[in-house]
Nucleic acid binder design. Sequence first.
DNA 1: ACTTAGCACTTAGGCGTGTTGAGTGCTAAT
DNA 2: ATTAGCACTCAACACGCCTAAGTGCTAAGT
Lengths: 337, 337
Amino acid sequence: MSEVRRLEVLRAIVEDYVHSREPVGSKALVERHHLGVSSATIRNDMAALEEEGLIVAPHTSAGRIPTDKGYRLFVDRISDVKPLSPAERRAIQTLLEGADDLDDVMDRTVRLLSQLTHQVAVIQYPQLGRARLRHIEFVLLAPARALVVVIADNGKVEQQVIGLPAEVTDQQLSDLRTAFLAELSGHPLEALRGLVDGTVQQVRPESAAVARELGAALVKLAEATHEERILLAGTANLARSTMDFPLTIGPILEALEEQVVMLRLLSEMQQDARGVSVRIGSENPYGSLAETSVIATGYGPDALAKVGILGPTRMDYPTTMAAVRAVARYLSRILAG
Amino acid sequence: MSEVRRLEVLRAIVEDYVHSREPVGSKALVERHHLGVSSATIRNDMAALEEEGLIVAPHTSAGRIPTDKGYRLFVDRISDVKPLSPAERRAIQTLLEGADDLDDVMDRTVRLLSQLTHQVAVIQYPQLGRARLRHIEFVLLAPARALVVVIADNGKVEQQVIGLPAEVTDQQLSDLRTAFLAELSGHPLEALRGLVDGTVQQVRPESAAVARELGAALVKLAEATHEERILLAGTANLARSTMDFPLTIGPILEALEEQVVMLRLLSEMQQDARGVSVRIGSENPYGSLAETSVIATGYGPDALAKVGILGPTRMDYPTTMAAVRAVARYLSRILAG
DNA sequence: ACTTAGCACTTAGGCGTGTTGAGTGCTAAT
DNA sequence: ATTAGCACTCAACACGCCTAAGTGCTAAGT
């Protein structure tokens, strides 16, 4: 009962099950994979694997299917990341290079990834913690109503309309803008909170109240870039893969729609040596995702923002991991260029 | 065989079927609704209704269910829009008033509507056709790379990073901004295309190439505000209502994800006298939506942008229509205030 | 100490058969 | 125009049966 063959059996079970969606038995196994032993021997191995909690039999006389633990072992020790085909690489490259906007890049990436993997793709907008303030704009919309715009040096723009405590003129607003800009320009966005007060105290007393409002808006906008957005694509794939289980699809869709949930989920994924992070079924902290796996990885200069996919635990891990990794790499390259 | 009773029978069938999800027979009908006649009479009426194509029997010995045409008649002539409960009205009001941002308003509205109706809610960002150019900003990110920002007088901001055909200085860029602004400020966004050329020709020859690029970006951004964004919520509701039909949910999700499709769908909805527009099942131009109905209405000052819901043809039209209408009204009020 | 053949045992799932119940259409009487 | 009555249809459910796949175990073989 060699150790290596047992792992080989596990691999075979996982691969066959992912491919056929049906529990796989000892006989079918020796037929399809040329392990040099008989089905009886495989049965013994399987019993051992079941003992270890790596596989289970759905009912007495059916084949075995991998448990979450089994998938975990498969991912960690058995499988190799399958490289993408040249055609796929080319497709990724040309598609992503055609994008102009940051929004466009994100949109294309997430669609691409969902098509590549046939799963639900998720992408988190780049984090801007390190971004610095490039520009401020105040636009008077009404006598006591202004649009506040913050532009970061990485191209991200945030804006908000606020009401002002008093009527102001265009000139007044322009002066305030200059004052704020002189003080804040070039500083990291997260440092703005500590700096606006200084500016507020410098302006003439009659503008102080207005300046205070504007400063608060600036801080809020700067910090709003922290609470990242999530983009989804390919939710229809859920229907395909979970067809047998239309009961679970509802909760999954709910979770997907809750940006907060998805953000936490992604932020908790620490990528490992292979460059991607995998969460399998019950490893997920959310009950509604107990039958789904998440594969994600960081991208961008500091790999802080995440991109990945979500699908049923029964998925083709090697190729999916490869796709996620490849897309993340191309994405990083595009953003850097 | 009075005309009015036949319509009454249709109404009863629709209401019972929506409520029970099961084909409704003549006997059950006379029991639940106190029509003063026997089941045999109802059977005759039903035969007539079936003759007119308003109801069908799924198989020989089952009750009848409404056809799309039946729902249409029900919506147009039989049903009254059911007013919302005071509690619901209060909920709408307090929830929407708590929003600060435009994004926040949209987000809250669409979530609210999906919870209110238990359907998938859709909202289109306000259209800006009438909007005028308020401000332009060029920000130099690298020697030949600039961020172009367009600000409209209704608070909408669009930005894009573009590459420039030559290296420019901050001063050059600033001058170009001034030139463009002088020419374009206050003009409607959709008129920009015809105006940028004039500016390009006024600038000094060495800046012409750069100006051309910038002008093109301005036009693109101004027109980008036309292609509106769509926000979704409550897709999980699809799983609930379409539980029997997990086959159709995939295509529906695909359609929902395609903003282009949804935008066309919404733009084609012309609201009628009752203030909402209803598309029932096969009335929809898209095959994948053949079993879903859409209820939408315009909102905002000119009712150009749309908000609405999408769900199975078997839905509670009166209350859902009421909810859509109410939410749209509150939304208009919030945006105007 | 593994491996293997053989065998008894288990069980989901497919298939035919009856049975039931809801619902219809038609006819004849009111 | 309505209604009671009746014969008829058919989905849905329940049984019962059988088969195929697959297992665990034992005993024999290497």
